[in-house]
Design a protein around this nucleic acid. Structure first.
Lengths: 342, 342
DNA sequence: TGGCAATATGTAAACGTTTACTGCCGTGTA
DNA sequence: TACACGGCAGTAAACGTTTACATATTGCCA
């Protein structure tokens, strides 16, 4: 628990005023009201005094008078995941250009933790929030709504009433379809899919896309070719082992985190791609750039999503009464050498 | 610039008091003074009223009364860098267990940006800060000192007066030494080193370690075998090209970001490790785990550093008058198959 | 020289909490 | 019955800003 500290009286506007031989009002105007004109000589004296005694405005106090805090928050469910990390970097950079600092929080896929975080952020009265919800539970966003804090839901949609929120996401159906289609076009017909046991619909949608592509090519969808497991390297290995049993010629590794485990398993067993097995990975993990033969990846629209989310939030802050907007971005194929033409 | 919003009167303690038919003092006691006894029936009524009208305490107001804000900050110089990302994840997790939320900021190696960030954090009166300084400039920490905000310097030390700050770092000299020593032990004598043009002494120290190891084995240090360039993949490729010209049998890739470019260059040119060239990389990038043959890495003590930094900060917050502490951690060899024994 | 703008500065009342202090009520004792 | 005491509840004064409003100062013109 945060520790209570003996109140360390800090340097205030009052001290600056005394030092500069003027009133606190003038000092305040110097620091926070650009329109108001102050005699240059006095302004200079105030500034001088402030630096001398090391004055820094107390943001809590000014925020109490309804001043914006200049803080945005990004709450993600998996902070270490490169997909999110990259988006965070981008968002932070855009926010900075707009004059905001960003608080990054990690819910670790835990809705309760998410709630605690959101409550804290509301308590801070942040100016806006980008939220990648831990689960498809809408109740947590209620807090943001109640306090009229502009927000954007990122990457994971709620099943109902999507149009009620600002939303930026990717088309998971399309990425599943795209990956599968790529393999079908190369002549593959027995195609497996590995994902993870996600509490959110993303993986499910990718599977739908996968199945739709198969259907389009008149390939019957086999239950056993679709695997899911928890999200870990070990689970990736397990799924890889199962995949090999099912004698398919190609696989869509539907999530980059488990894909790593699967590839490591293939390496261990001496399974080579594309010769023994054609592979497409959904996502663009860091390691995909160096692995030989290069893996064909479905490049998710991370950059576009981050930019859209940040800009949508900034717009929502500027115009609180604007109606909610939704942006869904598509993935593209980043071709490697992991798919054998047959 | 943060946008000014027409003051949206939010739900306050006063509203709760009215609703519960009591005074604001009682409501405040219910929410923030555990000792004070409130008749259970009344307390219940207050809680009930609060949830009904959706009251969330205004952190700015309570912080004005000297209450701790429950916010820590981590300011890093390269947020996208996995080394920092991993430490951030760890720090956030430890801080959370202690009841703090963490604001992550990115200075992008820019001391001016760092100053702006720190000023903002001081304005927020955060409870503590972990700072990985953009440059070896001590003036920015002065702000933290002035406002008595406990802080820990992470990973990059200041040349002078290190004992004046709480510091957690790695022994860069040792990692340079370790990498080189590993190659020397394997029988290599012509060993190159690639780093980056760092404004901070880290790379320099690694070079010192490298040279010390060579000296120990009576190998003359050749100027042309030590390369530096900017930190980018392209620079890594450039350095790799130069390395090949200098006919060495082994190389220490002294920084994981440029190492990636170098490896890609080797892949393009068909240079194979360890047969054509033995390699040791300082750092443990994500991709090192999947690349074949496995690269021998110098595992930096990320985890230990993150834990130490977080705990040191928490200690410093609890005991503001404790004297500064320094922790320097050592790296270890994570052996792969990229070093040929000769 | 007086008066009137226009400009520059200061006063004081918020903002939403926390908490020292005062006051009230009921119980137990003399 | 009167009184002290203890336990709760409420009043009001901060905390450090911002800003509407009041006041002082200046310069200019009649």
């Amino acid at each position: 628990m945060p520790h209570t500290i003996k109140a360390q009286r800090s340097v205030t506007i009052k001290d600056v005023a005394r030092k500069a031989g003027t009133s606190i009002a003038t000092v305040s105007y110097v620091f926070s009201n650009a329109e108001r004109n102050i005699r240059p000589e006095l302004r200079q004296r105030v500034l001088q005094a402030a630096t001398e005694i090391g004055y820094v405005k107390n943001a809590a106090a000014s925020s109490m008078k309804g001043k914006p805090r200049g803080i945005l928050a990004v709450v993600v469910a998996q902070f270490g995941n490169t997909f999110f990390t990259r988006m965070c970097v981008e968002i932070v950079s855009i926010a900075r250009q707009a004059g905001y600092v960003v608080t990054l929080c990690n819910s670790d896929e835990d809705p309760d933790q998410e709630r605690i975080i959101l409550k804290r952020l509301v308590a801070q009265r942040i100016d806006g929030c980008i939220l990648c919800p831990a689960m498809s539970r809408e109740e947590n966003t209620g807090l943001l709504k109640k306090y009229r804090i502009p927000y954007v839901i990122l990457e994971r949609s709620f099943p109902e009433s999507t149009t009620a929120h600002n939303f930026v996401g990717q088309d998971n159906y399309q990425s599943g379809y795209l990956a599968t289609r790529h393999l079908l076009d190369a002549g593959h017909r027995r195609i497996a899919f590995s994902g993870w046991d996600s509490p959110i619909p993303n993986v499910c949608e990718r599977v739908n896309g996968y199945q739709a592509a198969l259907r389009e090519f008149g390939v019957p969808a086999e239950q056993e070719l679709v695997l899911t497991d928890e999200m870990s390297e070990a689970a990736g290995r397990r799924m890889a082992a199962k995949l090999l049993e099912s004698k398919m010629t190609a696989a869509v590794l539907g999530h980059h985190e488990t894909a790593k485990g699967a590839l490591l398993y293939f390496q261990d067993k001496g399974i080579r791609w594309p010769d023994d097995l054609s592979l497409v990975v959904i996502g663009t993990p860091e390691w995909a750039g160096v692995l030989l033969p290069r893996i064909t990846c479905i490049q998710r629209p991370e950059h576009a999503m981050a930019v859209a989310a940040a800009e949508l939030l900034l717009d929502a802050i500027k115009q609180p009464d604007i109606s909610a907007a939704q942006h869904v971005f598509l993935s593209t194929v980043s071709e490697g050498d992991s798919v054998l033409k047959r």
